[in-house]
Design a protein around this nucleic acid. Structure first.
Lengths: 216, 216
DNA sequence: ACCTGAACACCGTTCAAGT
DNA sequence: ACCTGAACACCGTTCAAGT
């Protein structure tokens, strides 16, 4: 539902897709430093068209990140119907790690700079929402400690991705996920975490909204 | 001991220090995008001098990262004398998170690109060595599960930093560290991690050494 | 040996001309 | 409306001249 902008002309919409695909491919191959010229060439459009469709190179990157996040959210919603809450939760995490390894260059981007982007913010909030539901189901089932929140998980996940990214083989990521699982086991009341789970509002405060970074 | 290069002339050495300090300060304030011109200005030297002392901007950044890593290694060696192995281990991790929050821009740098730098590689290996000793002491004391290695820890730590970086208040980092601690609790034989702890050789293979990225 | 700033190269971005 | 490539601006890097 972030696609509420006025519909583009046919050729414009087509170029947009061509650019997104070309860019995603180029970034995956050579990292975020690939030039806009190269991307335009791959998409078969003029250099100026890139900036007609995306106000800035960062916005182009952000648009791809949003795409990926939406895919993960969608997968998460499917998993809400899974009869095994615990397995469902960890399957989502595993799929996130997988896509992070594929698009490793992109996950570089989800840092300070990019959480200032409004579209990413929205996609992130949606993902956190889905994750929260999956998490609560597992907590109700008693397989996950109840003093963690969706953002605790999302942050640990980011860590796993960061850690596993360099290693092309998936074993390292698997180990790290197993450690996350161990961290999330129910615990005695004496071992509770300090403080309260961070909220989206906490993040809002941490990443002040920046004007001129919106839309894509 | 990586300071084995021929000693610089007095003014050169002085400029090197001025540049490192000015750059660290500038990066902390405005992130890694601050221009070389600005750094030179702050250090009170000419623009060309930056490139006389450091072959490239990346090398300048790498030199600062190495500095910080060496500090952490030094702190770790102190903690080897601590009578409480468990407390010592987690104090090092906490101090690492602290310095990562201070120099957040720098830890951005410790990604794919920068592990190709030979000096960072050396500093990283030393840090892993110290961490390994601290870890084994705690494992011998029975407070930490014995199927994790120093690199497992280093990767989880990187995750904590990544997660906590945006939040200026330290509470979030504290929570994440508590989760790490939970993950490291000794476990029953049925819950062991799959595979074996990653080694430095595994990382070497993951980050192929790149010619022309050495020294600083 | 080292320092310096003017010159160069590269790349993100803008814009006048074209459809 | 949108596309395009030439022109612009910015920044990392080089280098000839100076100490």
């Amino acid at each position: 539902m972030p696609e509420t902008s006025k519909p583009l002309r046919a050729d414009a919409e087509r170029n947009r897709r061509l650019l997104l695909d070309a860019a995603a491919e180029a970034f995956a191959e050579h990292g975020l430093e690939v030039g806009v010229a190269e991307i335009a060439r791959r998409a078969g459009v003029g250099r100026g068209t890139v900036f007609r469709r995306f106000p800035t190179k960062e916005h182009l990157i952000a648009a791809i990140v949003v795409d990926r996040m939406d895919q993960v959210s969608a997968r998460g919603r499917e998993l809400l119907a899974d009869p095994n809450p615990d397995a469902a939760l960890f399957e989502l995490l595993a799929s996130m790690v997988g896509s992070a390894q594929t698009d490793r260059a992109l996950f570089e981007a989800v840092g300070d700079t990019f959480l200032a982007n409004e579209d990413i913010r929205v996609a992130h909030a949606q993902l956190a929402g889905v994750l929260d539901q999956l998490l609560q189901r597992a907590q109700d089932a008693g397989t996950i400690r109840d003093d963690v929140g969706a953002l605790d998980l999302l942050m640990m996940f980011k860590g796993v991705c960061e850690a596993a990214r360099p290693f092309s083989d998936a074993d390292v990521a698997a180990r790290q996920l197993e450690l996350v699982r161990a961290a999330l086991r129910p615990v005695a009341a004496t071992e509770r975490l300090s403080g309260r789970p961070p909220t989206l509002d906490d993040m809002e405060r941490a990443f002040p909204r920046v004007e001129g970074k919106a839309s894509a």
